[in-house]
């Protein structure tokens, strides 16, 4: 009898434990539900939309991959696609060099424990706390050709010939936007690199020093290889960010990627196709837009995976 009840208690507590284990799996459900509703579902919805013919905002017949074909073979869709694609690549390359390059140097300087390091860290990160739209608006004012701070400053110091309609000239518009974006994203990159630098054990660097490694050599042979994980993260994030570039372009140049499509990106082009372009009064092509979204998804997913694969191989075990 006694034994039996003991067993009973044991199984009960075991049951309780099982129940607990099981219930733990329920906790992700709210987050998962949101994720499915807002990420997974739209993904598949876009994929299915891209296979239909659309008259305005009404879904028509199933047409297979015809939307994809016209996206790549008919004018002006194909030239717009390649133009936007090219701009995206510029976006990525320039951000890698300017944003991540400067961020790495700044992170290194902060890491070397200069004075007010804490202050600089916060200062670099501050722009990131602003909404992208505010950043866009702010820089649009600064870059205004006739009343903007930049051109007024250039005129004041006698460099009139340098003053340009920055956002209106196709030669400078894209670069201006990328630089603004780099300014915006700098702080985040500094943080990632700084975390990477601080993850390197001090004794390792000390040992290298004792072996005679200094300055550039130390960076090249010791620090950089050990920083590969942070560099991987920043490369992939920058790539994804560059190929999703939308907000700043939209805020500063509108949905037409003005001037003359010189700041058009794939995401802006997608917006224009799916939701209508100039002045919001344009007609929409949801089928083509969805096809473009699907293509964009595959570009980002496959190239990010490739980056991870290649860069992971270069990571050094400590």
């Amino acid at each position: 009898m006694e034994l039996e009840s003991k067993v009973n208690i044991q199984t009960k507590s075991k049951q309780k434990k099982d129940w607990k284990k099981w219930v733990i799996h329920l906790f992700p459900i709210p987050a998962l539900a949101i994720y499915i509703l807002f990420i997974i579902y739209p993904l598949f919805a876009a994929f299915s939309y891209s296979l239909y013919d659309w008259q305005g905002i009404k879904r028509g017949a199933f047409i297979g991959i015809e939307n994809f074909i016209s996206l790549f073979t008919t004018e002006p869709f194909n030239s717009m696609f390649w133009n936007a694609f090219q701009n995206n690549i510029w976006y990525f390359l320039l951000e890698m060099v300017v944003q991540n390059g400067i961020a790495f140097m700044l992170a290194y300087v902060i890491y070397k424990k200069i004075r007010f390091a804490e202050f600089f860290k916060v200062a670099y990160f501050l722009p990131r706390l602003l909404s992208v739209i505010i950043v866009g608006f702010l820089w649009k004012l600064i870059l205004n050709p006739n009343f903007g701070a930049l051109n007024v400053f250039l005129n004041k110091i006698g460099l009139e010939s340098w003053a340009k309609p920055w956002l209106g000239d196709p030669d400078t518009a894209l670069i201006s936007i990328i630089l603004v974006n780099s300014w915006f994203g700098l702080g985040f990159a500094v943080l990632i690199f700084l975390a990477g630098l601080q993850g390197i054990p001090g004794d390792l660097i000390e040992a290298a020093r004792l072996d005679g490694a200094t300055g550039p050599k130390l960076i090249r042979k010791i620090i950089l290889p050990l920083m590969v994980p942070s560099i991987t993260i920043m490369t992939v994030l920058t790539f994804i960010h560059a190929f999703e570039a939308f907000e700043l372009v939209y805020a500063m140049e509108g949905s037409m990627g003005e001037p003359y499509y010189s700041t058009d990106t794939l995401a802006v082009y997608f917006y224009r196709l799916a939701f209508g372009g100039s002045g919001g009064a344009d007609s929409v092509a949801i089928g083509l837009g969805s096809a473009l979204a699907v293509v964009l998804f595959f570009i980002i997913a496959s190239i990010s995976a490739l980056f991870l694969l290649v860069l992971r191989k270069r990571e050094v075990e400590m």
């Binding site: 196709p170 001037p259 003359y260 196709l273 100039s278 344009d282 007609s283 092509a285």
Partner: peptide
């Protein structure tokens, strides 16, 4: 001519922009 994708009107807009930029 406010039809098509992009519309003829939107085409005029970007092409005129291109013209003013010397393209």
């Amino acid at each position: 001519f406010n039809e098509g994708n992009p519309t003829t009107k939107a085409t005029l807009e970007t092409e005129l922009q291109g013209m003013y930029l010397g393209k």
